[in-house]
Write a protein that binds this DNA or RNA. Structure first.
Lengths: 226, 226, 226, 226
DNA sequence: CGATAACCGAGACGGTACGTCGAGTCTTGGC
DNA sequence: GCCAAGACTCGACGTACCGTCTCGGTTATCG
């Protein structure tokens, strides 16, 4: 009766990403799942959340009603409310930007700037909120988000750093993990934790990159004045 | 019948912070509230959470049963489940450390080291988890935690910075807000978000302070080797 | 949590019928169950059924709503929909009549007449309908109804027969079981099975008693004409 | 697409009862309905019910699965679950016996004996159970069963009575309706209502006919001994 | 022989009700 | 007036069926 139900936990695209060879030879009998229903559910979740409803007000019954869909149609796709939320949230998240690649430092600024703008946009801000507010309660969300967002970002940063090292722009022993944390951490804190360290300043990203690379500094920095 | 109920939202000590004079002149007739019940509730919450239960599994009924207390006894103290959680969390949190004050940089390391050790201890790690995972859903928690933890820490950092500037240890234009964020942000990320950027390294705090002050650096840093 | 839940299956009166000694010495702590709620539920069931709704349309949710009661209040009293139905039905049933006792034959007529009138009254007709329509699906109903209705009636008939035998009105070897069946069976059939053998005839009961006692007869009955 | 669907409510044989000429001139293009599926459904219903399942446990989905048939195949034949049940029940019912016709009284005994044996056999007992337990809820069943079982039996009894009257075996004014009820009623009660008035006694039918014809009797019956 | 049409098993669809659980309130007897 | 116990209303949870609707595929008759 229940052929698959936790399919969406890792990698949401049905059919897989590997080319050519079909994942399942059995021709999947019966009426196929409605793509329309799936989109209606996602849209309903988004709409409900954008209408100011808190995360606790997000009801499976409410989503079903708002999407014009039966509850069973939701539970056929996800085993419970949390799994649905995880999957929808991940789908709603913005993709990472393409990096222009002029110089490594600019790429880091571009990346941070993307994060900053995500924090300003209502929808993606909500996505981040949900993610970081539910990580503890929903281990699955942590897993998925890490695989689909965090790890790619770290990879990106690492490649940028390597490029910068190759061109001599960065020191050869620059620790890309530490760099990633020191860039992403403060931006995340501003985005999801405190409203009073706002994201409005357009120069914020550049300032952060500058600070991380050059240091906020002790007196040794007087060399700058020289 | 129910004389007060949202007393605990700011400042949890009954009777207020001002010394001596009771807040209410009316002497509160009838049997006084049981201090034992209050502690039993806090202990029950702690015990339940330490036993691996997720935050979603924390129910008022469960707490009441675990504490050997009636549900009404809980609702007599807090207006709802969230308020109880906020209050208990704040009570369980560790106080900030006294700063030895040899040199400013060491004080920053001490402060970060305290955060790191909190992240390693099970109980305070859970407190941090709850706080940063529920900030969005519980505005009251944000308020209370900000007043009781975040603001004091920023103040502390600001005073350390000022001291460092006075002694010439730090540049005169060092932005203490930015410094706070760049120190606290990455440590928080390691603590509450991802398990794979661990806190085990005893030199972590010193390395972070060093990195923030001196920068992770571009090629200009070769001068260090000089 | 669930101290008692199948209490109503046999003997609906809480506290028992035995005199003096209390059934439970423990003083039953906590808020007692609302008698009003119980009656509201029964009334709601009756009202819903009288409004032409079929048995299949009788919903626990509907009953709860009609009674102004939470579903939990129903499920606190009965373990499921069927048990509730059984209990309510038995409560709604009319009690057996007092038998005047002039002569045994008249008592039998009185008894049958009571059945006939029950079949004509809307409410008790519905009770009978439910009972006889659900006996197969609800073994509990069979049990309860037998103990509370059928067996008492058989006892009554037996005592009437014995009285008639004592006065010489009946043969000494009259089989009271057989008599009960031959009186009750046809009346039940008219009541619950077929509409076209109606109960309107006021002389029906007397005719049935006469027929059962004297026989519908072969030619020997010409003595009647004499 | 759906040319006919309530065909089975009266007269289950497709094609109608009139001989030769097909009811519909249009020759029903396309693949004809599978006779095998139809039988599988009936068999599945019978099997499920014989396995001790209650009537409430009989679901369309369960029947479809047990029969190895799609749900649509069921709904193509009957408009809903109840219609299916009615039709299957009628098909499973045993036909009435041929009456030997020696003397009228023996015929009545034969008829009752057939009923008694049906009540003893598991399958036909279940059929009777369902019929008499669902008459209230399923008006269609009442209709069909009356036409196909009850009315013929009454006709049979009436003809037997008329024959008995013609031969002088019975009184001329014997009410055949009353007789039918007084014979059938008690036997039905024993069969479908109470287990404790069993059907095992092989002499039961004869005793019943005797009782109905001769009466259970008051003291006047002492004349029999004379 | 190919097109057409209705069939077939499988299973997803929108609904409705089930029985459970928890939130926050109310009501007992007893301290 | 507090306390433990537990009933109260309300509403969401996740499950099961109902009757309908596609899917891909099969099996008849018609043209």
């Amino acid at each position: 009766m229940d052929t698959e139900r936790q399919a969406h936990l890792l990698g949401s695209a049905p059919g897989g990403t590997s080319a050519g060879t079909p994942t399942c030879a059995a021709p999947r009998r019966g009426r196929p799942r409605s793509e329309a229903a799936e989109q209606a559910i996602c849209a309903a979740v988004e709409r409900l959340m954008m209408d100011g409803a808190g995360l606790a007000d997000l009801t499976v019954e409410g989503v079903a009603q708002a999407a014009g869909v039966g509850k069973a149609t939701i539970y056929r796709r996800w085993p419970n409310k949390e799994a649905m939320l995880v999957d929808v949230v991940v789908r709603l998240d913005d993709p990472e930007p393409e990096l222009a690649g002029r110089c490594a430092k600019d790429d880091l600024v571009t990346l941070l700037e993307h994060m900053r703008r995500r924090g300003l946009a209502k929808r993606s801000r909500w996505v981040l909120m949900v993610v970081f507010n539910q990580l503890h309660g929903l281990p699955a969300l942590r897993e998925v988000y890490y695989e689909r967002v965090i790890r790619p970002r770290r990879e990106t940063i690492r490649s940028v750093v390597e490029r910068g090292q190759a061109t001599g722009e960065f020191r050869a022993d620059l620790d890309s993990e530490m760099l990633a944390e020191m860039l992403v951490g403060p931006m995340l804190v501003r985005t999801v934790l405190w409203d009073d360290a706002p994201l409005d300043d357009p120069g914020l990203s550049a300032a952060m990159v500058e600070a991380v690379l050059e240091g906020l500094g002790g007196p040794a920095h007087v060399r700058r004045a020289g």
